[in-house]
Write a protein that binds this DNA or RNA. Structure first.
Length: 590
RNA sequence: GGGGUCGUAGUUCAGUUGGUUAGAACGCCGGCCUGUCACGCCGGAGGUCGCGAGUUCGAGUCUCGUCGGCCCCGCCA
């Protein structure tokens, strides 16, 4: 092992080109591969920019050639040498540096490496377990570097864009207070105030509103948020948002700004030109056509309303459901080539999605093929076929149940079928605004209305009166941005008037005393001339994931957590020293 | 909290109906090799089959439990 001494790197491994031939260079990096021919030894030296071949030739430098015998995979080297052209037949077209090589005159082995637990290449993908345990090695893989580079450029692009639009990035506290509603909070005990706890923010929601009251007019922040809920491929306990808030605006301003930001990102990072404005769809329409408030509009296969058509048949499972206030909806798969088994297999799938069963009708050249065919008159069949435009080869899949169940099952079945049929164009980016959400929805478990977005969302001006009489019918000035079936972000116009905010609290069953205790600071602020304001927040991790074409957030997060919210590298979370607990006046009760 | 799936050499994986000494590739160690770039050739080491019970004459293989990774449901204003 040698010291670095006063050596200074003259270029990255990916840099050398024929133009620099003849120059003396110092390059540093990791041993990616080693080819020892006894006489001459080749080493591929790698850094984040690429790979350069360095050559140890005993005729050029005997000591360096001898020393190179000890070099192993992932050793860290510094080499000084002369850049040479390769002879025509030894040029490697697979690397940008493949026309040249560095003839080593001096080698310094800066650090050895134990045998690595998995190879640093693109061919083999190690198990997730190994990757997360040795994340620093996983990060050496070019794909991980590419993903995090993309993420960096995303953040930089967004910052530059918002700066250009007159936004200020302002930091807000991580140690804040726990609020009711929403996700479970991560709590931090206060040593100085025994028995009291901070909460890590689920989002900087209230702070950004208070910045508007503070007159900042246009705020943004690329900020970490924390939610103590179970994980998914697209959900980590800590995640990053592009958080935005503006004063004296309409939803249109948010749409225009967001569209500018997203198209900018897509153009700069992916070379894609996304047309603006993005299409918009009301929540009601989205539920009707897709059964879902975040529809993937890259493909059709929309839901069909069937209640009226089938209510007068002799199909008992249908008529019973309709009698109980349920509905019937379905999907039509055109030119369906499913085997009988494939169709039968959809039934347990639909049941897994929450359906009691899945009815089906296949249109063949001999008429209806279906377990239900005998319950429908020929006349009715013709009426149904005409109404739905059914033709030979079509498969009609139907679910009858309460509306919520029908929507849920069919929306998931739609995604399953879209994937199975291969009709989802993978390389398309289809943005969609979903608007006109209900302000609240009834929670059967809690037996009260809960905020659909959050408790600070403004009702539409014409619906304010309904807050007292029919809360379920009140529309919110809220909007979500959906990309390829993934909720990328959401926002709303907020309540800037104290009386409206108090009405909303009351509607949510938050009493005056509780509102005062939990949100007193907000209500106080609203009483001091709060401007009309609103904003939006986008998931950076999800956006980066889609831009990177990755299947999991972990691919675009340097140090992510497992499905059990554990960091396999640091072994966090961990028990702590009893002394620490005593200082915090915290007792663990398992 | 629930369901599914995976766990075999350092790594990626194979392992038949439960049957002799658990294999391959890459990596690792030793040797040879002056134009390779997935270098090649010769030789070698390396296994608590995640862990614990059970069934069996016999378990990597079957059963139960448990731990861990992944996916999903619930949950995620």
């Amino acid at each position: 092992m040698e010291l670095l001494g006063n050596w200074q790197r003259s270029c990255y491994c990916g840099d050398p080109r024929p133009a620099q031939v003849g120059q003396e260079l110092i390059v540093m990096g990791w041993v990616h591969a080693r080819r020892d021919h006894g006489g001459v030894t080749f080493i591929d030296l790698r850094d984040r920019t690429g790979i350069v071949q360095i050559v140890f030739n005993p005729q050029i430098n005997e000591p360096a050639h001898t020393a190179a015998k000890d070099i192993r995979m992932e050793y860290v080297l510094a080499v000084r040498g002369t850049l040479m052209n390769r002879s025509a037949e030894t040029i490697n077209p697979n690397f940008p540096t493949g026309a040249v090589e560095l003839q080593v005159s001096e080698l310094r082995i800066l650090n050895p490496s134990r045998t690595v637990p998995f190879p640093i290449d693109t061919e083999t993908t190690p198990t997730e377990n190994a990757r997360l345990r040795y994340r620093y090695l996983d990060l050496r893989r070019p794909q991980m570097y590419a993903n995090l580079l993309l993420r960096h450029r995303l953040a930089k692009n967004v910052r530059d864009y918002l700066d250009g639009e007159g936004f200020l990035e302002v930091e807000t506290p991580f140690l804040t207070r726990s609020t009711p509603e929403g996700a479970r909070d991560y709590l931090v005990p206060s040593r100085v105030n025994p028995g009291s706890f901070y909460a890590l923010p689920q989002s900087p929601q209230l702070f950004k509103q208070l910045l508007m009251v503070g007159g900042f007019d246009k705020y943004f922040q690329i900020v970490r948020c924390f939610r103590d809920e179970d994980l998914r491929a697209d959900r980590q306990p800590e995640f990053t948002q592009i958080d935005i808030e503006m004063s004296f605006i309409q939803p249109e301003h948010i749409f225009r700004l967001s569209e500018g930001m997203m198209t900018n990102v897509c153009r700069e990072l992916k070379g894609m030109d996304i047309p603006v404005p993005f299409p918009r769809m009301s929540y009601t329409e989205a539920m009707l056509r897709y059964g879902n408030d975040k529809p993937d509009i890259r493909f059709g296969l929309e839901l069909r309303e069937l209640t009226m058509l089938f209510r007068e048949t002799q199909i008992k499972v249908f008529t019973d459901v309709v009698a109980k206030g349920g509905i019937i909806r379905g999907l039509i798969v055109s030119n369906c080539t499913f085997s009988r088994k494939e169709i039968d297999d959809l039934n347990p799938l639909a049941q897994g999605f929450g359906a009691k069963g899945l009815a089906w009708i296949r249109i063949t050249n001999e008429g209806w093929q279906s377990p239900l065919a005998k319950f429908v008159s020929e006349e009715k069949k013709a009426e149904i076929a005409a109404a739905l435009g059914l033709k030979e080869g079509d498969l009609l899949l139907m679910v009858a149940d309460q509306e919520k169940v029908v929507c849920d099952v069919l929306s998931r079945l739609r995604l399953y079928l879209g994937d199975k049929l291969g009709i989802i164009p993978k390389d398309e980016f289809r943005f969609l605004w979903v608007t006109d959400f209900p302000l609240v929805e009834y929670d059967d478990e809690a037996k009260r209305y809960v905020a659909m977005h959050h408790p600070f969302t403004s009702p539409t001006e014409e619906d304010i009166a309904l807050l007292d009489t029919a809360p379920g019918k009140v529309h919110a000035r809220a909007y979500d941005l959906v990309l390829n079936g993934l909720e990328l972000g959401g926002g709303s116009i907020r309540n800037h008037r104290l009386d409206v905010q108090q009405k909303v609290f009351a509607c949510l069953g938050i009493g005056e005393a509780e509102a005062q205790e939990k949100f007193g600071f907000l209500m106080e602020a609203l009483s001091f001339g709060a401007p009309p304001h609103g904003g939006i927040a986008f998931g950076v991790d999800r956006l980066a994931m889609l831009l990177a074409g990755a299947e999991s957030l972990r691919e675009v997060i340097a140090f992510p957590k497992t499905a059990k919210a554990v960091c396999l590298m640091t072994q966090a979370p961990s028990p702590v020293d009893p002394k620490q607990l005593r200082e915090l006046s915290v007792k663990v009760d398992l």
